[in-house]
Simulated scan of single mutants.
Amino acid sequence: MTDHDLPENLRYLIEEFNRSGLRELHIRKGDFEVLLSHADTAIRAPRRQASAVPSKVEAPTPARKVAEAAPAKGGSFTRNAPEGTIVISAPNLGTFYRSPKPGTPPFVEVGQQIAAGAEMCLIEVMKLFTTVKCEVAGTVEAVLVEDGSMVEAGQPLFAVREA
């Protein structure tokens, strides 16, 4: 199969995978299955005849299109960061967690003063957790996504007013 034979949305998924830094991505929906891997030791299923080929593969939602959701617990939810703030974005695709583990307080709260390098949240993908740190010292103005929601690489997570 050449690159020209791929549906446009699948090509987009492959490009995003290559930019994400992930080593492996496995997606299965009905009869459609795709495994993307940079590892030489990736487990590959034996080829089988597909019973149906989807006519359209859904592309990920653009990062700037934040889902309308309830405010994150203890924070505020806004579609866009308040003017004059610095946006802290997701380094990769994954699940956004405000706390280090369930039942514990969030890393940061709206209105909290934080130092440069302060831990703000975790992004989890395939049991691999990435700590997101603030790049500047300042005040947390807004939490832009809901705890436990899926985020994309580059999606705004927090708005911080620099001190």
Score class of each variant (00 low, 15 high):
136 V>P: 07
75 G>S: 10
82 P>I: 03
92 N>A: 13
72 A>G: 05
40 D>G: 09
50 A>G: 11
39 A>Y: 14
79 R>Q: 14
68 E>C: 07
52 A>G: 06
81 A>S: 09
75 G>L: 08
49 Q>P: 00
154 G>C: 02
64 R>D: 14
131 T>A: 10
130 T>K: 00
85 T>H: 04
129 F>A: 03
108 V>Q: 00
57 V>C: 06
60 P>W: 12
74 G>H: 10
146 E>C: 09
148 G>N: 08
60 P>H: 10
85 T>M: 06
106 P>N: 05
130 T>V: 07
106 P>Y: 05
36 L>N: 01
94 G>E: 02
141 E>W: 04
37 S>T: 15
140 V>F: 02
41 T>W: 15
70 A>K: 10
54 P>C: 05
104 T>I: 02
54 P>S: 03
107 F>D: 01
108 V>Y: 00
126 M>G: 05
40 D>Y: 10
96 F>Y: 03
72 A>Q: 04
70 A>F: 13
86 I>T: 11
68 E>S: 13
70 A>Y: 11
103 G>I: 08
134 C>P: 05
70 A>N: 08
90 A>K: 03
139 T>V: 12
37 S>F: 07
154 G>I: 00
59 A>D: 06
121 C>W: 05
149 S>K: 10
152 E>P: 01
93 L>G: 06
95 T>P: 03
59 A>M: 07
131 T>Y: 09
60 P>T: 10
149 S>N: 10
146 E>H: 12
99 S>W: 09
125 V>R: 08
145 V>E: 01
107 F>H: 00
49 Q>K: 15
126 M>N: 07
45 A>W: 12
77 F>Q: 13
35 L>R: 14
57 V>M: 04
116 A>V: 08
76 S>R: 09
59 A>L: 05
109 E>K: 15
96 F>P: 01
49 Q>M: 14
124 E>W: 03
139 T>W: 04
46 P>H: 08
84 G>I: 06
123 I>M: 02
114 I>N: 06
71 P>V: 01
130 T>N: 04
110 V>N: 03
47 R>A: 13
55 S>D: 15
63 A>F: 06
102 P>N: 09
68 E>P: 00
127 K>Y: 02
77 F>D: 08
37 S>W: 07
134 C>N: 12
101 K>Q: 14
143 V>S: 06
107 F>T: 01
64 R>T: 10
134 C>M: 05
113 Q>H: 15
40 D>P: 05
102 P>K: 13
82 P>T: 03
106 P>W: 04
146 E>P: 01
133 K>M: 09
144 L>I: 03
153 A>N: 05
86 I>M: 08
121 C>L: 09
108 V>M: 05
41 T>D: 15
56 K>N: 13
102 P>Q: 12
142 A>L: 09
73 K>D: 14
57 V>K: 01
133 K>S: 09
93 L>C: 09
52 A>I: 00
136 V>Q: 13
84 G>K: 04
100 P>L: 01
133 K>D: 07
107 F>S: 00
78 T>Q: 15
116 A>F: 07
62 P>H: 06
136 V>C: 15
